[in-house]
Structures are given as structure tokens and as C-alpha cells.
Design a protein around this nucleic acid. Structure first.
Lengths: 226, 226
DNA sequence: TAGATTGTTAATCGATTAACAATC
DNA sequence: TAGATTGTTAATCGATTAACAATC
């Protein structure tokens, strides 16, 4: 089962933008705006209109030439594509600051992601409530995750991430998002993605540095006095 | 000042991986390993060795053919490239769960990013200490950020993000990382990057959905009984 | 010299973009 | 019919990868 993967793949880059379009469409809908255009969507989201049309074309052809897109209809198509037809259960392992932030993050519910379990390695904090859910001991993970087809989130400090990943895999979880620094090994059938909160900051810092480097090279005669 | 930008640009994709290499090299250094190879680095980080060599070649040629890379020397080169020659001051606006998580995030200090100020819109929590720093009222932002060439981080809820961005821009900040959902408008001279914590989860959810879709299309005769 | 490993080339892939024919 | 806007094409760009000549 591989070679020619069936033409179902919407590019990840497009998937990442769909929630932005959906947010704008929802706001339009709330204001009673019945239809829109790729130009308007592009302006609201901050991309080029050609990209909007390309992205939306992956969903099928839901626009009308010369007219635009129906707000309600397009909203539904995007929501469907994002899997919001059903809710995806999420468990979070690691209830430090980051885990708590994620548990309370408003952006999840609006995208069909429902947090159903919070876990921490430290049994002493078990029972505390975060965003309405109790923190549970790791021993409970299997019973919550097994057969529920959950998405697992690792929000532990770096050193505990391996333990968290092993526990998730052992409980049958096949989709894991890792916020902890460092790389993790998981079986092939498990999809593991990683988010490093510092990466984008690092890129900003490097760009800042490059801006300085450019200035000092481009204007070598500027501040000459020794 | 534009057209042919001076050949200083290390690709962002490479910059994003450099901290991973540095982390592995630091661990090797601690264990007294004097040299390594692109194969070893690749295995430790979870990429192909060709990618490692390509990435490192952007830093100049610091390896020795037939031998490998000197751990200490390569560590220094990467640290220098990442701007760790100096420390970059960071201010965080929005001290909810996410802001607190970022303030305490260990990954920052190790990359030359130093949090020097925490701010919140709600003056009632001013004075509270998070990770050793006091939360300050927004009114203090200008005095802290002005002329300090800081990187600004927006960790507010979505609706407050615009206000936070305006305050940062008004204080002269030209590099901003936005963790709040929604898009922000900033002047051209300000570099704005965005991280959406839910995006990667969303991608996992869509992939999960596609896996189901594939199964039901590929094996249409499997569970037939009505 | 034989063995190892880099740095670079060239092929490939995926994403972005401008332009425009198709269509309302 | 004239005007507007989509959906698609083709060019471009950046990143990944395999392969290998260069070099220790």
C-alpha cells in the first residue's frame, strides 16, 4: 500500500491557511455579507488573490466566475474539509504552563478539536482542574486513549518527552504533536509532528542580525571616525 | 535599498534546523566526543545526511573530507550564525497561560533570547512575578522597548492582539512574533511572523481524516454487510 | 594506496505567482 | 454585449534528495 497515493492530498500549506479563510468567512457571515471574492479574502487574510483561488480550487470548484464565492456555502466546504464534520478528541500530556495554555486555548474548539483528557507525570497535581477538566495520572492514559483514536499532544519539558511519547504509543495513539524540544523516535505507523516555540523567534533574531550585517556592508563609509 | 539583496541569506528552513544540530553537538561535547559526521548528526536529528551537509555548507566549509566535523568548532560556528554572539532582548505582551508558558520556556535562554519585560493590559495583575520578572502595565512598554531593539511577542487572546501590536509598533519595535489567532496589519518596515498553536494539530486531524477516506475507498468491499 | 566523508551538482518536488482564457 | 471574476496554465522560486567528484 503505497506507490501512487490516491489523489486526495490537499497540500499541507493550503490546509494551514484554510482556518484563516474560515475565520474571515465566519465574520462575514455574522455581518450578513452573502458573497465575497478572492480579492476580498486575500486582503483580509494577507495573501495574494491568486493563492486564495489556488487554495480554494483544491476543495473543488465552488466559486462562480464573474461573481465570486457564496460565503455560507464556502464556509461549509472548508469546515467539511477540515474534518469538522466530526470532532477530533485530543489528550494533552504535561500540565505545566504550556499544557495549561493549550488546554485553555480557544482556537481548538473552533476547529473541531476537543480536549478530552489532561495528564501529568506528577501524581501530586492529579485532580486539579484546568479549563474544566481534571488532571489525571499517567496510569489513566491507556483507558482514555485506547480505541478512542485520539490525537496526543506532548507539552512536557524536554527530558520527559520521551516518556510521554512512549506512553502515548503504548496506548495506541497514532497522531502525536510534540511541543517539547528535542527529537523523538516513534514507530513508522505513528505520525509525529513537532512545534518548537522558539524556532520562529530564532528566525526573527537571525533576520535582525542580517539586517545589521547588511547595513554595515552596504554603507561601509558611514560611521568612519575611529 | 532592495532589488539584488546581498548574498547573506541562509535559508529560513536551514536556520530552523540549526538549533537542533547545536543541541546534539552540545550533548556530544558534554560526553567528550571530539568529532562527528553528517551521518551521525542526521541520525540524531532525524533528517538525511545530505540535508545536514547542505545546511552546514551554508555556514562555510567547516568539515574535513574523509574525516568529518570538529564538534567544538562547528558548535561555535552555529552559535555565531544564530546570533548568539549577542543576546537578543525579548518582551512578551499578554500574561495569560501562554505568556507565562513562554516566559518560563527553557528553550529561549539557550538560544540567546533573553526575556527582559512582561506586559499585560490588565493593570490588576501588574507586579505579579513570572519566572523572576514582574508583570508591568502597558504604559511601561515604551520605556523598556524604545531604543533597546527588542523582539516583541504577542501572547494575548485574539481580540487584544491588535492593541498589543499597535503598542509594540508605537514603541519602535520592528520584529514581532504573533501567537494570537487572526491577522495583524503592521507597517512595511516591521517584520511580523505568526505562530498558530492549532495549525499543526489541524494538519494532524486532516491527515487522520484522509487516512480514513483512503481506507474506505481502497477497500470498498471490506465491511459490506448492510 | 584504500577507505571515508565532505561539498557540490543536478534532478526532483512542492509551493507561489502572474497572466489569461473561460465563463458568468 | 461589456464587465467581473474564477479556475487553470506555465513560469518561477526555494527546499529536498541522490549521486559523485574532490579531498583528506
Amino acid at each position: 500500500m503505497s506507490t501512487a497515493l490516491p489523489r486526495r492530498g490537499i497540500p499541507d500549506a493550503t490546509v494551514a491557511r484554510l482556518p484563516d479563510y474560515l475565520r474571515v468567512l465566519t465574520a462575514m457571515s455574522a455581518r450578513g455579507i452573502p458573497s465575497t471574492s478572492s480579492e476580498q479574502l486575500a486582503a483580509a487574510v494577507g495573501v495574494r488573490s491568486a493563492k486564495v483561488r489556488k487554495d480554494l480550487s483544491h476543495l473543488g470548484n465552488h466559486g462562480v466566475r464573474g461573481v465570486g464565492y457564496d460565503v455560507a456555502n464556502l464556509s461549509m466546504k472548508i469546515a467539511a474539509e477540515l474534518g469538522q464534520a466530526r470532532e477530533w478528541p485530543v489528550v494533552i500530556v504535561g500540565m505545566g504552563n504550556l499544557g495549561r495554555a493549550l488546554a485553555a486555548y480557544g482556537g481548538l474548539a473552533s476547529r473541531g478539536l476537543r480536549v478530552i483528557g489532561l495528564f501529568d507525570h506528577d501524581d501530586a497535581i492529579a485532580g486539579q482542574r484546568v479549563a474544566g477538566l481534571p488532571i489525571r495520572p499517567m496510569a489513566d492514559l491507556d483507558s482514555v486513549a485506547r480505541d478512542a483514536d485520539v490525537i496526543g499532544v506532548i507539552a512536557t519539558p524536554g527530558p520527559s518527552a520521551k516518556e510521554a511519547a512512549d506512553a502515548l504509543v503504548a496506548a495506541g495513539v497514532t497522531s502525536i504533536l510534540n511541543f517539547a524540544p528535542g527529537s523523538l523516535a516513534v514507530p513508522d505507523e505513528v505520525e509525529l509532528r513537532k512545534v518548537d516555540l522558539a524556532t520562529e523567534l530564532q528566525i526573527l533574531a537571525v533576520h535582525k542580525q542580517q539586517r545589521y550585517a547588511e547595513v554595515s556592508r552596504d554603507v561601509p563609509l558611514a560611521g568612519v571616525a575611529p
